[in-house]
Design a protein around this nucleic acid. Sequence first.
DNA 1: CCCGCCATCCCCTGTTTATGGTATCCGCCC
DNA 2: GGGCGGATACCATAAACAGGGGATGGCGGG
Lengths: 211, 211
Amino acid sequence: MVGILIYEDNDSLRDSLANLLTLSKDLLLLGAFARADDIATHISQFRPEVILMDIEMPGINGIQAVRQARTIDKKVHIIMLTVFDDNKHVLDAICAGASGYLLKKHLSDGLPEAIRQVMDGEPPMSRGIARMIIAGMQQTTAAPAANDYKLSAREKEILSHLAGGEGLKAMASALSISLDTVRTHIKNIYEKLQVHSQSEAVSKALNEKLV
Amino acid sequence: MVGILIYEDNDSLRDSLANLLTLSKDLLLLGAFARADDIATHISQFRPEVILMDIEMPGINGIQAVRQARTIDKKVHIIMLTVFDDNKHVLDAICAGASGYLLKKHLSDGLPEAIRQVMDGEPPMSRGIARMIIAGMQQTTAAPAANDYKLSAREKEILSHLAGGEGLKAMASALSISLDTVRTHIKNIYEKLQVHSQSEAVSKALNEKLV
DNA sequence: CCCGCCATCCCCTGTTTATGGTATCCGCCC
DNA sequence: GGGCGGATACCATAAACAGGGGATGGCGGG
């Protein structure tokens, strides 16, 4: 028996969802609310295993609610419900800890199924959501890829030590080379990266994923 | 008609894939190779629309191959084939630019279907892959959340300037305070972060998302 | 074979940081 | 009102770093 909470501000949709759930006798609706402001209390009180969460709501929005829920109960499964299929909301919700994502127009057929999936550790995904996630990941990681400072292998090594917060002396010891050699490499790195201090180099290295 | 290239080092699997493709008359196998070292040449030569790519191969691995392919042809769709269902490879491949991901044990039934999906902009996903992606995203963004160094607002400001690669003098000017004051703040930051240099502080700040 | 790139090392000079101590002012809370 | 944390500021010393120079050996390509 799977305990479920619903957060959805549209009254008729909330009722439909509730009805949908009562049709499956392995699903138990514990509560349905129009806003998530008291989600912390609800979770402590009802101990749900699955939460259906709207994104757009009065009071705190669904993504904040997910964050709160996660801090209280790390194991609860959260399925986002939304009319939006825009990239940003999807990514935010998943980063906040949502387990799955359903567009409202698709859930009339597959909701009980989706709940069973998520209980099995299988995240339910509306058509197109997976694509958005992939697009989002590629975007966030592929964007800064137009940099080639032609650092030599050794220079990259030195730079990674630098980015690890090591001082020049420590590096010299770690790499078993002279302090002056380290300094020479770093001079060359500065030249190639067009920077003038350790912290600037570290900043550039970490921000542009050079290490 | 969809032009396809295959990279797969297992001979019999490669043959099976090729056979599978010839069964669908809207799919056209342009070539099948045991290693991807010359993928750049192949793409220029065959102009494929879809590439099936193994991850584990002699020579350059599938993920590097994806990266190369993407730089040559941004529009080509790449479906990864693998026996591994471990998180890291999946994430790496997708970040490198793969459009979809199939476990080898699942592809005997759905390969032509998957190719049509990917042509429609719908990424094919073996069962469980989506979950891994979500887990990966949650992990990369939710992991460093247990740090509270109790930096004051001003200290965070100073730290963010530091992480931007600014020197102390520049900061003093930018914030219209004395160089000595900047120093004092930095001393306190070092104390709270338990570090002893700019680069160490920057490293910690960027890695633990303190800024 | 020579040239260029890389890694290694050394020296020198001036600037910047790290670390310590001290001190004033302000706002907040008991 | 006294204590406390935060922001501001100054001084002094020692260490570390930036930027300039020059030098050596190895290794690969034309």
